[in-house]
């Protein structure tokens, strides 16, 4: 849903997206110690698998984005993790695109980093309420922000795409509701079962 295919966006948008996401990737990779990579890979793979699960909503099903939760739990690792997942999906699943990879990475990674920055303080001394709140907020914020960025990348590619951008932005609202609910459930579950996963920065420095 959040993956733009090749051939839709205008070339300036594609180039800007590629350059900015390359910069963000470089920045993120520089912050990571290579010894953390096995852990980063396992979590990247877990979120990748979880985002392939169909969740029923109304008469149809959706796939969760989970980028808010990823940002919250992984911190900076989220940028290369999303890039790798999107690349694999474009190449081996036919979802998304090769030239749109930069834009697609940005549309998911920027909201994820935003959630990390904004909501991690909630998890410094976690309680069940805080875990629920952080999960719900991460779900809503990340999905709505991703929808806005997605609509903006379409709208910037030509005025003909503006109506489609509007339809897509509206379609993200029910997704945000389900994602908020499930993210809250996930964090409350982790709080009860494996609180060490919630401690901000634990994954990064573990």
């Amino acid at each position: 849903m959040a993956h733009i295919a090749d051939g839709v966006l205008a070339v300036p948008v594609l180039v800007t997206g590629a350059l900015v996401s390359a910069g963000l990737l470089t920045l993120a990779l520089r912050r990571l110690d290579e010894a953390q990579f096995p852990q980063a890979a396992v979590f990247a793979a877990t979120f990748f698998v979880a985002s392939l699960i169909s969740v029923p909503i109304g008469p149809s099903t959706v796939h969760l984005l989970l980028n808010g939760l990823m940002g919250l739990l992984l911190g900076w690792i989220v940028v290369p993790a999303l890039f790798v997942a999107l690349l694999l999906q474009a190449v081996f699943f036919g979802h998304g695109g090769l030239t749109a990879l930069g834009v697609n990475t940005l549309n998911l990674a920027v909201p994820a980093l935003f959630c990390a920055l904004l909501l991690r303080p909630l998890l410094v001394r976690p309680t069940r309420q805080r875990a629920l709140l952080a999960g719900a907020a991460a779900g809503v914020l990340a999905v709505l922000l991703t929808g806005l960025l997605l609509a903006a990348s379409l709208a910037l590619s030509g005025s003909a795409l503006v109506p489609a951008a509007r339809v897509i932005a509206v379609a993200f609202v029910p997704l945000a509701a389900v994602e908020a609910l499930i993210s809250a459930v996930i964090l409350a579950f982790l709080y009860r079962v494996e609180p060490s996963l919630l401690l901000a920065g634990q994954v990064q420095h573990g």
Partner: peptide
Amino acid sequence: AASNRHTWNSLGWLMGMLLVRSLARARRL
């Protein structure tokens, strides 16, 4: 799976469980 609260709860627990198990998996790896 259906479009109801029970399904969303269960899928949330499922995803949470996947994360918990991957922590152990990451340590083994």
